[in-house]
């Protein structure tokens, strides 16, 4: 079954998103592999469910965590998107939102939490510190980017990012989930050189 090229998100136009080429590449890969009509339809339903029900693990280490709390509070209210169910147990979470600097002492803990999560699991790296070490890049005790430890699906830059930026990042993650395949092969495990 032909997979649609465009993954739509309510109230935001396809062209307004960046990094569309990345998703198009994923779609192309899926279409090249091919899938049956029934399997494809079931996949679409599953992906719809998964993308609209992203329960995040509360994993705040510093400043960004406060903005995440603001995201959950009344003004920004992430419950509207169904993201509000934050699980504190990694077993029940769908994605880990890494909020704040990851230090050398924390890195094994983060890896362990990631390993404890149940598939499908996604990683969102929030803030400059998690992306590259941010202002603490030259420190002796800071990991320069969590992509060195765990695979990252979406980066949200900022120090800390505004709640609107969180939303944009979450929508990007939703779009990414919508072009996945659950039944018959998983396309998340890309080769290293493709995942830029």
């Amino acid at each position: 079954m032909e997979i649609k090229k465009r993954t739509d998100i309510r109230s935001m136009k396809y062209e307004e998103f960046r990094n569309n080429d990345y998703l198009e590449r994923m779609v192309k890969q899926l279409n090249d592999d091919g899938a049956g009509v029934i399997v494809g339809t079931a996949d679409e339903l599953i992906n719809w469910g998964r993308s609209n029900s992203l329960w995040s693990l509360t994993f705040g280490t510093s400043c960004c965590a406060i903005e995440f709390m603001a995201l959950g509070a009344a003004r920004y209210d992430m419950a509207r998107f169904g993201f509000e169910v934050t699980r504190n147990s990694p077993r029940q979470a769908d994605m880990i939102m890494v909020l704040g600097t990851i230090t050398h002492r924390m890195a094994p803990v983060l890896k362990r939490l990631y390993d404890q999560m149940a598939e499908p699991k996604y990683v969102v790296a929030v803030g400059g510190c998690t992306i590259s070490g941010g202002p603490f890049r030259n420190s002796y005790h800071v990991v320069n980017g969590i992509d060195k430890i765990i695979p990252v699906d979406v980066f949200i830059p900022g120090c800390p990012p505004r709640p609107e930026a969180f939303y944009y990042g979450m929508m990007q993650l939703q779009r990414k989930i919508k072009v996945e395949r659950f039944l018959g092969g998983v396309n998340r495990k890309e080769k290293k050189e493709d995942s830029k």
């Binding site: 109230s11 998964r50 609209n52 029900s53 419950a79 509207r80 998107f81 169910v85």
Partner: peptide
């Protein structure tokens, strides 16, 4: 003082929980 689910499945967010169930 919030709205609650209002995006998945129309204005009322009626399909939010079914989405959770599928997930």
């Amino acid at each position: 003082c919030r709205i609650g689910p209002d995006r998945v499945g129309g204005r009322g967010g009626l399909l939010q929980v079914p989405a959770d169930v599928i997930k």
